[in-house]
């Protein structure tokens, strides 16, 4: 039980995918302009990441390893992720057309979110079990969501700030993310 808690703590805070490992920065900067969009994106990414972690575990252990074709790992994971994203896209299009419109190009772009592939690859590298892989995926997604949602609330405030012209928009966002990354270093050593 405690090892599962350690996985969650590690992926959400200590090795946060965005602020410590710097994966998944494009949606982090791209969809953090409004809080509502960020919450929608966080939900979609959580769905995709967890499902992709499960599917890639299954594909790796029940297809690639028995057939002895582990060298096709990356390409098969990408395929799996693309399928899951397509599934999520159809799901959101039917259930929340508004969110679908708002997320726009960033929804299919979850496919190229390096955090998703990163989770799948790290799972196989660490030889995580099925439950560990699922938790790893979910924890990574929870950490991503946490940071994305907090960051979007902050960016809404930043948009009203008297930022010097050269630093407006994405630049000050990057600096903020950098300062946050410093703060997240305080969690080092927890797990």
């Amino acid at each position: 039980m405690s090892e599962f808690a350690a996985i969650l703590l590690s992926t959400v805070l200590v090795n946060n995918y965005v602020l410590v490992q710097f994966l998944g920065l494009c949606p982090f900067m791209g969809v953090s302009n409004k809080l509502e969009t960020a919450i929608g994106m966080a939900g979609a990414t959580t769905f995709v990441l967890t499902l992709a972690a499960i599917c890639s575990y299954l594909v790796h252990n029940y297809v690639l390893v028995p057939l002895n074709i582990e060298y096709l790992r990356t390409i098969s994971f990408i395929l799996v992720i693309a399928v899951v994203v397509q599934f999520a896209k159809m799901f959101i299009e039917k259930t929340s057309p508004l969110l679908y419109r708002v997320l726009g190009v960033f929804l299919p772009l979850i496919t190229t979110n390096c955090a998703v592939l990163g989770v799948a690859l790290q799972n196989t590298n660490k030889a995580n079990s099925f439950i560990e892989s699922t938790l790893f995926g979910f924890g990574a997604a929870a950490g991503f969501s946490l940071v994305l949602i907090l960051f979007s609330a902050m960016r809404e405030r930043l948009s009203a700030a008297d930022v010097p012209q050269p630093f407006e928009g994405a630049a000050i966002g990057m600096i903020t993310a950098g300062l946050m990354s410093l703060a997240f270093m305080g969690f080092a050593g927890l797990v």
Partner: peptide, 10 residues
Amino acid sequence: VLLMNFAAPF
């Protein structure tokens, strides 16, 4: 303090 500064707008 920095971590919660980050969360304050939320």
